Each structure stands twice: as C-alpha cells, then as structure tokens.
Computed example of a mutant assay.
Amino acid sequence: MELDHIFICVTEKAPEGDLLTAFGLTEGSANTHPGQGTANRRFFFHNAFIELLYLNDPQEAGSELTRPTMLLERLTQCGAGVSPFGVCFRPEAGKKRGPAPFKSWDYHPQYLPETLRVEVGESPLSEPMWFYLGFAARPDQAAPERAQPLAHATGFREITRVRVTSPNRETPSDAAIQATTVSGFEMTVGDENLLEIGFDHEREGKHHDFRPHLPLVFRW
C-alpha cells in the first residue's frame, strides 16, 4: 500500500487552512460528508493530499452508523490520549488491488456509493485513525472532472516522507505496524502529537513549524 492522504482534526470551518494558504499552498475543493457529520478543507499534491477535518453536525457524527469510527471523539476530545490525525492508504500503484493489509472493519458512509467501502483499522484513540481506500488513486491521475489544483507557490510536488510522533507508549495495533512498512512513513514516541511532512525528498533542508495553531511541521 501507499499513502493516499492525511487528515488533521481542526476547529469549526477549519480557519487553520488560512495558515497553509498564507504559506503558499493552493487550496483544492472542500467536501462535506453527509451522514458523517464532518467537512473539510483540502490541499493536493501529485501523489497525496492533506485534509483539515472538522465537525459540522455532532448528531450525525454520533449516529449509530458513524459512532464506531470514533471521529466524534477525535474531533471533540483534546489531549495526549487522543490522536488528532488520520492516515489513509490505497493500493500501491501498479499492484493488484485487494483488501487492506491490516485488521480492519468495513465502514459504508452515506456519501459513498453502496458498492464502495472504507476499511478502518482496529486501533485505539491514542493512535491515528488508520484506513484504507481500495478504490483510490493518485491526485495526478484523477479524471478531468475530478482534477484538483496541484501547483503551489512553494513549488512542492510530492509528499515523500511522513513522521507521526505520539505520546502513545502502548503496544502498537496491527494497522500501525503495517503502516510503518510503507516507504517514507515513520512513527516515533514523543511528548506530544505531531505530524511532520517532507516534500520532494527535502533537498533544500528547510522547514516551517505551524505550531501552536496546528501540530504540523513541513520539511522540504
């Protein structure tokens, strides 16, 4: 599998996205998720994208359908015991498409066609939400009607490294173990939840820290 996208739980309407546009990223289209009670702002690169996810309907997020995802808890409970991140994988390009290579359960949200599913990893709130989209593809391979802006003033093209730091010291879930087998993906233990994203193999040796507004560091 390979990285499809990463989400960060943010506040209502995701004003944190303005930090990314001010930095020089071009914003793509936003989504709402009917029946799930969430919405987002998104920033696309050639091989993956960043999603800022926020709560827009607590009743839907707490519904019988959505409750098992624990998205409501991630979006409303701050602290070291709850990871604000979600990491989505897809089948590796050129490889046969199959089920998620980690222990998971099938989630059929209302906003997807009945034939499609999200495979959600079995993991605690202290870890990122792990999930797998067997039908997903690279943003730069999207059909014309679904194409997103990929050019940024920063010149960033691809996400080539992701490091998730977490205070979680429990035995990692099967999904977390499988995630660390993906090229360029790392997990470390630290004092806080932090997401570091490296672009284009970090050739320039530069970085930008979005804390305290976002638990996010860019490296390029």
Rank of each mutant, 00 (worst) to 15 (best):
F23D: 04
S166T: 12
R138L: 13
G198H: 02
I50W: 08
L112Y: 07
G81D: 15
Q178M: 08
S83D: 08
L3H: 12
Q148V: 02
V162G: 01
A142H: 11
F23L: 08
E16M: 07
G62T: 01
E202C: 12
P91Y: 05
R42P: 01
P99E: 14
A136E: 11
S63F: 02
R117V: 15
R163M: 02
D200A: 07
Q110E: 15
P124N: 09
N56Y: 04
N47K: 12
K95T: 15
A147D: 08
G79Y: 12
H5M: 06
G190H: 05
Q36F: 01
A179T: 04
T165E: 12
S29K: 11
G121Q: 13
F44Y: 15
I159N: 10
E60Q: 15
A151E: 13
E122F: 04
T32L: 06
N193W: 05
V162M: 07
V164S: 01
K96S: 12
G28M: 08
K206G: 14
L195Q: 05
E145S: 13
D106T: 03
D200I: 04
T38K: 05
E92D: 05
Q59N: 04
P101I: 06
G79D: 09
F199D: 00
E64N: 05
A93D: 15
L75Y: 13
D140P: 04
P212L: 13
D209I: 07
Y111I: 07
A39K: 13
E114C: 05
I50R: 09
D18K: 14
N40G: 09
D191L: 05
P149V: 04
R211V: 04
P124R: 10
F89G: 04
H207W: 05
V164Y: 07
G35Y: 11
L19N: 02
G94A: 05
R163K: 01
A30W: 03
E60N: 09
T154K: 09
A153Y: 00
